[in-house]
Design a binder for these strands. Structure first.
Lengths: 162, 162
DNA sequence: CTATTTTATCTTGATGTCAAGATAAATGAA
DNA sequence: TTCATTTATCTTGACATCAAGATAAAATAG
């Protein structure tokens, strides 16, 4: 009997015709994602950053040298709007973690590159982040994790066009 | 081969020592929650509201008559701060969907009650929302949904104290 | 070659959120 | 009783986000 069960019991009483099965599944999934985001956020905070900053810096790092991408390339992997990307880059630039470099071939575009300071910071943070993720999935057995992952893959592949 | 696989392939190349298994699972789960929130948001928008407003109005509705709770009671079921609650109530009050009623027994506290307009709106919206949720879980079979739900329950119960 | 369309980035204004603290009322300890 | 503590709500300031549109440069159509 968790929070979600209580909510469902209330609906059963007030609106017994409602199909609460989907609600149970979706409600729990949203709760788990909230918990995960909060826990991962603690690791980011220890390294003076937050989730949005981490996403950008980690994307630049895993791209490999020279650790530079256009805002549009960065956008492609994150589910955010262009205005949000501009804002993220602004903050990171203010913090000295990335720099904007004019692209001479296409003057509409810029390259966002990790600074030395940014590279050092994100390398350390990624290591800590992976440790946090290991802790976060550890309540489930390897087999359960594999099952979970398969379900998510199936779900996402069914929703490519959503 | 989805987005997450691409990210993992990049890490494998740049930082082969990283354990990317947890990242795959958590990354996909965060993506699914993002997709679900966006899809449910469309239903809310059709009824002139959004997720936060829906949460408050639906909580008041499923409590049953007289459809009134204190901000603190409302907080208990949602994972938000008191300042966020104040803000949500302000917007709903401006929209005429709830009203604040002074509690004469405890003058620190108020009751947030559905207005007639708010009750009519949330009753319709809940029906549409449940239909949306049914559609959203339908890519998975009943058995897969049950497995998924069990995994989430196990995970949440292991994290009660997180 | 010029005009139109497309692309890449940024700007603006509105919301939603949190952390930290303010305020006011109720509770509890001495 | 009186003062300190706790509780309930709200306020403030800082960010993150989006939708819509502005701007400038590149690509394309005729």
């Amino acid at each position: 009997m968790d929070e979600v069960d209580l909510i469902i019991a209330q609906w059963a009483k007030q609106r017994p015709e409602l199909n609460t099965r989907p609600m149970a599944l979706i409600g729990r999934l949203m709760r788990v994602s909230h918990v995960l985001a909060a826990e991962m956020g603690k690791t980011f905070a220890k390294h003076n950053m937050n989730g949005p900053s981490f996403d950008v810096l980690a994307t630049l790092l895993r791209t490999g040298p020279p650790h530079a991408l256009s805002p549009n390339d960065l956008l492609a992997t994150m589910m955010i709007t262009s205005g949000t990307m501009t804002n993220r880059i602004d903050r990171l630039e203010q913090a000295g973690l990335v720099k904007r470099i004019q692209n001479q071939n296409d003057k509409r575009s810029v390259l966002i590159a990790l600074t030395e300071q940014g590279k050092t910071l994100i390398e350390k943070t990624v290591t800590a982040h992976v440790e946090t993720q290991e802790k976060l999935v550890s309540p489930l057995t390897d087999e359960e994790q594999a099952t979970f992952n398969k379900l998510l893959i199936k779900y996402l592949s069914a929703n490519e066009n959503v």
